[in-house]
Structure formats: structure tokens, C-alpha cells
Design a binder for these strands. Structure first.
Lengths: 210, 210, 210, 210
DNA sequence: AATGAATGAGGATTCATTCAT
DNA sequence: AATGAATGAATCCTCATTCAT
């Protein structure tokens, strides 16, 4: 992606309506995901994506206004899955079962990143992409906002006396702790999940004990 | 950087001997650092670097065999500063002052990343670069090794009964905890440092209490 | 052409299917032929070729993976014309008309290089190109093989008792005699053809008289 | 060599007077010869030559005005050796011993190219260089002139009745026959020399029998 | 005279995007 | 709507030659 490409529109050109359209959009995203996973972002070309997806380049531009929009959509998908996981978590149930249990569950909530090596590598690359292209930043910001809100809601419900502002800061750091899993090498994920839980409980305890 | 450029030699072409040479190497690195800081890795061109450094392109290639070699040198510099900081830490002193004090200091050791926003942003970008280009990986690996060893040494000295293999895993995760600081937004660094300390002490305690 | 370019793929990127494609490939080859004829191989640039062919550089690379591939195609064309000429020669007819007549015809077969100055100069340059770029060598080797086989077949048919191995050596030298025509200055081609015939008959006689 | 370099002066910048100068000129030529032999003309750089010769680039330009001048000198050396060989040939002696003997010896004269593979490959490359750079053409022309004169003198002395103009044409072709040896693969040199002799005698006979 | 760092125009190749069919 | 050939600005890197020291 050259400089000129920056600051372009990134919304999909059209909402895929016909099933064929959706299939093509999926094919494009799948191809991109695969290529990115295998070779990283460097050297990713639209022609390559099209070829890998089994459709002509021209058609790629039927659904995406430019190359970044594809990566944008990829990240969007990925983040929304993460957010769905967070959303689906039945926090209320656990909160009724006592502080310790709640703490443990909260830390589990934190552990969203998939423990599957494939997803973790992909996540790492996508996280890198966010840093690479300004347009993708907004996606990250929205996601961060979502995660932070999720944490704040939980911590409040768990009984924290901290101000929302302070809880938001903590929520932001909790997200960072969660993201360590992406950068953790495959060989130590199992242990890392455990340590992540310990670390999370430790810092969360602060706001519950105050 | 296109695909063909990958897997190239990355050692600086020559050791700068004449004072002018050293100045030029510095100018190149400074220019690159500045450009990377401002616009990220994307769109970084050799001509841009040369222009920014106030020297002709040809001269850039007098000191570096290719573009990546410059980024390589940049990362090398950066990591070696981090390693020097770790090395300079007088761990022994603290170990004599009791477990709690030692724990706290250990966690401080962990907090190596500069708290200055500039360095943290640069560090984040350089960390991203490592993921982008295979050649840079070796630099990271060596650095990781160094940090892990440093942690293991400390934890052993602090009295951990864990096996070296297990301590190495922990050391690896401690590094990840440390790196969270790079991804922490400027507004919450102050708090993040504190939480990072808490989190670190919590996970380190495991291996000391066993 | 710099060193890095050597050992690259040289097959045309795609078989020209649409008439326009074929026309463009022709235009590229014609432009290259013309430029090479006028200025030699040195200083031949892809931009020059494109400009001369009246198409953008990018389009040149639509049909040829790199500069050498163009020269490769040029040589391929040229050699295949030569081989067609050899193939088209009705050797059998002549063999029945007696040794002397056959000998004369054989030597005529040998005289394949065009007597037109343009083609001879071009041939000389292309022959030089083969020596310049390793990839082109395989083309020459295949052509040599073809010519040698052609000679051996003829000499056998003409009644030579020599072993195939020996005839192959002779065939290889006959090719060299044929190629003298390329290096012969325009002013003496007419005579050179005659002398070439004499020379050829003389050395061929050896294997028929043994 | 880029286009701009063409049409430059090619005489050595200074006649090497001091022994050190001569040694350096020799070193430059030897290095160039070696590099050309190994990698051909493509990719030959002055820096490479200097490094291989063990002297600084700047010094190369003390003795040669530009890169081509080096190749020029190399070819000059090579051709002068060939001419010395021709000169040293005691043709008169042989002419007194009868036509057949003379013919045979004449054809030997023709066989000047070294039968050593190294020299033959080098000669082939140098011959190619002549075709590549216009400036080198004059060297070839002078050499051709020399060889033609040598042949004419011999043929006249041997009793040919042909006009000088016609003998010059024959002489020119005899040179071409001689040059076939350069293009002959190593495996068949031995046989090629024999066939070259036969071919030469055959065409020379024409002018003696008329 | 000797040096070798400095120069910068030039060249091969790429690739996001368009648009004629 | 679908296609995929066409485009050409942009990018990395080279290297003959110079000239300050």
C-alpha cells in the first residue's frame, strides 16, 4: 500500500445482497486471510487476492473500493467475533456467586483471544495492520471502547467504588493484558493463560478492595 | 519493500570509521527514526530517508546494503539500549532486603520500556516491524533470549524452586507483560506502570511461593 | 542488465490469445529487434522498448516477465526460422542424384544464414547475446543439437561409414562453418557463400570417402 | 556500461613509465581478464576490477580514462599476441618446399587461435565485446586488415594469379575460418583443428589453381 | 600522486486501480 | 454486471566517475 492509498474510504462498496455476492465477498476475505497468514501484509497484492479467491481482480473492486477496505473488513470481522464472545459472556450469573468466583470468571472473560495458534498468529498480524494504516485505527478505537465499556460495566456490577474514569483506565489496561496472549509463543500459551489470569485478578482486586 | 527484498543481508555495509561516516550513519538512522515515527513503516522510501538525512541516495547505500538493513540497525540500537538498562540494574542489592522489597524491584526491572511517549510509540512501531520482515525476527529472538535469561537469573537468585525450563516460560511471559507498556495509550501510562507492577508481582510470586 | 537479473524465468508470461495481445507482443519484439539492430544490446532499456513499441512499460511486463525474456523470445523466433529452413530442405531428392550433386546440395543446406545484411547483422548480435546471458545458452544448445542431428541424418543417408559420435563432432563443426557467414562483412558475402560451400564439401568428403 | 559512456577516448591516460605503474596496469588488466572470463562482460564494474586488482578505484582512473579503455587495452593485447604469432611464422621457408607443403603450412598459419580452452573462451568473449561497443570496432578493423594483408602476401608469394582485391576477400574469409575455432566447444577442438585445415586448404587451392 | 567516499541520474520492475468490452 | 488487460507513477538499487583530502 503506497502513500496515496492512505485516507481513502474503507466501507464495502455495496452490501452483498445476492447470495453469489456474499459468496464472493467471503471468498475475497478468506483468500486475504489466508495470504496474510502465510506471508504477512508485505507483498499482499490485489491481484494475488483475486487469483487466490478464484475471481477476477475487477470483481474485487465491485465489492471493495480499495485494498485497505479488504483488510478493514477482515479486522472488522475479527473484532466483531471477539466482541460477540464478550457479549455472550453471562457475567451476571457469576457475580452472584461471590467475589472470588466473580474474580476468576472476570479473568476468564479477559482471556478472549483464541488459544488456537492460527487465530493467534492472524490476530497478531491484524493488530500490526492496525498500527500500519491510519484508517484502521478507528476500528481499533471502537473496539477498545467496546472492551473498556464491557470491563467497566462488569467492575461496577462487581461492586467497585472507583470512579468511571478510573475504571475506564483499568479497563484499558485489562485489554492490554488480554492482548499479551497474541504475542505469546505457541509453546507457552497454556501457561500464559494461567499467568494472565493471575495477573488480571491481581490488578482487578485493586478496584474491588478500595 | 517488495517480496524479493526479503532475506537479504542486513548487516551495515561497513563499520563507520571516519568521523564523517559515523555522522552520516547517524543521520540516516535519525532520519529513518523520525520518518517512521511520523508516518509509520508504510511509505518509507529510501529517497525520502536520504532527503531527510540531507545526503544523496547513493550515500545511503554506501553504509547500508538495502532499506531493511536500516530498520534492522534501528531495532538493534533500540534493543541494545533496553538490554543495557536491564544489565545495569543492581539486582543483588535488592535481593538482600527481603522478599517484598525484592519483588517490587523485580517488577521495576520489568518496567523497562521508556515512559516517554515518543520512545513508546517508536518501540511499538519497531515491534511491528519485527513482525513484518522475517530478517528482523532473529533480532527479536536474541533479545527475547536475553530478557528471559535475565529473568531466570533473577528468579533463581530470589530463591525460586522451579525448574529452569519452567522459569524460562515464566520469563517469557514476564517479557510480554513488560511489553504491554508499549501498547498502552499515553493517557494511562502512569497508571499502567502501577498495574503492570501489581500484575508482575502476582505472577512472580507463584514461582517464589512454590 | 545487472547481475541480479540473471537466472530469471524467461518464458513469455502468457500465450497471446486475443488478437490485440498478439499484436502487442509483435510490437514489443519488433521494437526490440529494431533497437538491438541499431544500437546493439548495450543501452537497451525496457522503457525504450516500450516507447518504441508505442505502449506503456507496464504492458511490456504483461507479456514478458523481464527484459531478458524479450531477447529470449527474439532468439527463439530467429532460431526456429533457421530450423524450419533446414527442415524444409528436401534432402532425399538430392541424395539420389549422385555423390557430387548430393555434396553440393548438402553444402547448400549448410548455407542457411540469410544473405541479407540486416538479418546477418541481427543474427550476429543475437549470437552475441547468447554468450552474454546464461539463460540464453539453453536455447543455443537446443539449436546446436537440432543442427547436429540434421547433419548426422544427412551424412548417414549419404552413405557415411563414420560412427554417430564422430559424425556428431563433424556436424558440430559444420554448424560453425555455417555461422562464419554471420561474421562475414557485407561486401564479401557473395564470395563467402561460395567459399563456404567449398570448405564444407571438403570436410564432408572426409566422412563419405572413409 | 551505459550509453553515455560510448564514444569516449580509449587510449590509456598515461604510458606507464615507472615499474610500479606498469605493475598496476598489469594488475588491472589481469583482474579484468579474470572477471570477464568468469562472469562475462555483464556486471563488470570498475569497483570490482579495482578490488580484484588490489588497488583503489581512483587509481584505476589514473591509468585508464574509463571502463571501456580497459577492455580496449585487453583486446589490444590479445590481438597483438595473435599478430605476433602470425608475424613470427616463417612463411618463406615453406613456400620453397612445394605447393602441397606450402598449402599445409598455410593452413597451419590460419590456425592461430590458441587451442587452450581458457584462451579460447576469453577470445570468444573479447570478440563479443568488439561487437558490443563501437569504439572497440576500430581495433578489430585494424586487426582484420593486418590478417588480410598477411594472407594476401602469403597467397601472392605462393603464386596466386588472383587480383589483390580478390585475394583480400579470400583473406577476409580465411580469417573467419580461423575464428571458427573460438566458437568450437572444448570437446571437439582437436577434430576441429583438423577440419579447419582441410577447409582452409580447399578454399585456398582455388586461388592457386586458377 | 594516491585514495576511496561521495554522487545522482538511470534502469528494471511492481501493482493498485480503471475501463473498454 | 463481469472481466482482466492496460496503465504509468513510484520504488529500490547500481555504478561510472569525480574530487577533496
Amino acid at each position: 500500500m503506497t502513500k496515496q492509498q492512505l485516507s481513502r474510504r474503507v466501507e464495502p462498496r455495496k452490501l452483498p445482497s445476492r447470495s453469489n455476492s456474499r459468496a464472493r465477498v467471503e471468498a475475497i476475505l478468506a483468500a486475504t486471510r489466508e495470504l496474510i497468514f502465510r506471508h504477512g501484509l508485505e507483498g499482499l497484492t490485489t491481484n494475488q487476492i483475486a487469483e487466490h479467491a478464484g475471481i477476477p481482480v475487477g470483481s474485487v473492486y465491485q465489492y471493495f473500493p480499495n485494498k485497505q477496505a479488504i483488510v478493514y473488513a477482515l479486522i472488522q470481522d475479527w473484532l466483531s467475533v471477539l466482541e460477540d464472545k464478550l457479549d455472550a459472556f453471562p457475567m451476571e450469573d457469576y457475580l452472584q456467586k461471590g467475589r472470588d468466583y466473580a474474580l476468576q470468571q472476570m479473568s476468564m472473560t479477559v482471556t478472549v483471544p483464541s488459544t488456537f495458534d492460527y487465530e493467534r498468529k492472524l490476530g497478531r498480524i491484524l493488530l500490526g495492520a492496525i498500527d500500519l494504516y491510519p484508517e484502521l485505527r478507528e476500528l481499533n478505537d471502537a473496539h477498545v471502547e467496546f472492551c473498556v465499556e464491557s470491563s467497566v460495566k462488569f467492575l461496577k456490577a462487581a461492586g467497585s467504588k472507583w470512579s468511571v474514569a478510573r475504571l475506564r483506565k483499568l479497563g484499558r489496561y485489562i485489554l492490554e493484558i488480554r492482548r499479551t496472549l497474541y504475542y505469546t509463543p505457541d509453546e507457552i500459551v497454556a501457561d500464559a493463560i494461567k499467568w494472565q489470569e493471575i495477573a488480571t485478578i491481581a490488578i482487578i482486586s485493586q478496584c474491588l478492595d478500595d
